[in-house]
Design a protein around this nucleic acid. Structure first.
Lengths: 122, 122
DNA sequence: CAGAGCGTGTAGTACACACTACACACCATG
DNA sequence: CATGGTGTGTAGTGTGTACTACACGCTCTG
């Protein structure tokens, strides 16, 4: 399993290389830290898994700065997005039930449900 | 909104009265605390909302001791069950998507989906 | 070879979390 | 009137969370 730090560093280095090739946009540790609003040394430690992942807000800021999906990054950070938690807390039994039903199903089955729901014949 | 503490106390007092009427089983603060594995004074403070809700494990133990649904009690405690979090973290985008789709739907619509899923033609 | 820019090391902070231990005051009962 | 059981008050503890501030050493460029 890739750790949060490993993933973050790899992601940044990929962006860095791509930005070199292209033109603008810098993906140095310092500039990413600045864009995401945290101290460079802090980010350095996070990327090397010396510090645990930061708060949800900072993870979101990092996702934004690196062009990555926030939910994915949050998951790697061992967290779940606050708005999802809120939704579950509002109707705990309902959501507990449905999540437990779906958790052992293969992706394609769940995806099919998602699509059915979105197409909205409910 | 009923607080966690208020709810807990009310629940315990209800059980207490019922147990009086019936026969066995004690629902004093001390005995519930003992059954759930925490200090009486701690539970006392929790029931009066002087202390914040305890850890997930303790909330579960309280639910067990009081015959209440753990997910409901956890929700009142502002928490979400760890197994649900784990399921979401394993497939963050998938579950984020489906929860966000469902969160604004009325109960009956969600329930219908739950049933369809359980009846398993997926 | 000075200076900019890069990543990193060390130190420390403020606060919340999750509790325990023990003493106390009250009430009813034998 | 002492004893058992009830809820509560006070105090303190260890651990994690979530960071900041600042200094250091390396490398590349002008």
């Amino acid at each position: 399993m890739t750790s949060f730090g490993q993933y973050l560093r790899q992601l940044r280095e990929t962006r860095h290389a791509a930005a070199q090739a292209a033109d603008v946009g810098r993906y140095t540790l310092r500039s990413v830290a600045a864009n995401a609003g945290l101290e460079p040394s802090y980010l350095s430690k996070i990327e090397r898994d010396i510090q645990p992942p930061p708060s949800e807000a900072k993870v979101r800021a990092l996702a934004e700065a690196l062009g990555e999906d926030a939910d994915v990054l949050l998951a790697l950070a061992g967290k779940v997005s606050g708005d999802l938690l809120e939704a579950i807390r509002k109707r705990p039994q309902l959501f507990a039930h449905i999540i437990r039903e779906l958790k052992d199903m293969p992706d394609h089955a769940v995806l099919r449900i998602v699509r059915e729901v979105r197409d909205g014949q409910w």
